[in-house]
C-alpha cells in the first residue's frame, strides 16, 4: 500500500463518519437563533434551505461520495476515469457549498468543514498521483 492509498483511506473514513453524523444526528438541530453571536453555527447552516439538493441532504450525498473513495482505496480498483468523475463531482460540490456557507448563509458549520477538508485532501492526493505517475498509485 502506498502513502496515497493510506491518505485516501483515512480521510474517506473520516469524511464518511462526519457526514453520517451530520445526516443522522446533527440535521435534527433545534429551530433556534443563537444569542451567542458567532460566525460558527451548524444550526444556521443545516436549518437553511441550502442544506438540501432537490430534497436530498448534502450530507447524505457526502456519505455516498466518501464511501465511494473508501471502497476504491480498499479494493485497490485504480481506474483513473472513475476517480476523475468522482473527483469533479466533489470539486463542483465543494465550490458550491463553501460559497453558500460564507457568501449566502454567512455562517460556517464545523462538522461540514471537517468533511470539506477531508474531501480537499483526497482530491489533492488524487491530483498529485495522476499528475506525477499518470495513474492512481494504490
Amino acid at each position: 500500500m502506498t502513502i496515497i492509498r493510506y491518505i485516501i483511506l483515512a480521510f474517506s473514513l473520516l469524511g464518511f463518519s462526519d457526514s453520517s453524523y451530520i445526516t443522522f444526528f446533527e440535521s435534527n438541530a433545534t429551530l433556534s437563533c443563537n444569542t451567542n453571536l458567532s460566525f460558527i453555527s451548524c444550526e444556521n447552516v443545516l436549518n437553511s434551505p441550502y442544506s438540501h439538493l432537490f430534497g436530498i441532504p448534502w450530507s447524505l450525498l457526502g456519505m455516498i461520495w466518501f464511501i465511494a473513495f473508501l471502497l476504491l482505496s480498499l479494493t485497490g480498483y485504480d481506474d483513473v476515469l472513475i476517480h476523475v468523475i468522482f473527483m469533479f463531482l466533489g470539486i463542483g460540490s465543494l465550490i458550491y457549498l463553501i460559497f453558500v456557507e460564507i457568501g449566502v448563509i454567512g455562517y460556517i458549520c464545523l462538522y461540514c468543514t471537517i468533511a470539506h477538508v477531508s474531501a480537499i485532501l483526497i482530491i489533492v492526493s488524487l491530483v498529485y498521483s495522476i499528475s506525477k505517475y499518470k495513474k492512481i498509485l494504490y
Binding site: L71, G76, Y77
Partner: peptide
C-alpha cells in the same frame, strides 16, 4: 483490475 472493479461495484 476487473476483479477489483466488480468487487467495488458490488459493495458500492
Amino acid at each position: 483490475n476487473n476483479k477489483n472493479r466488480n468487487i467495488f461495484i458490488f459493495i458500492f
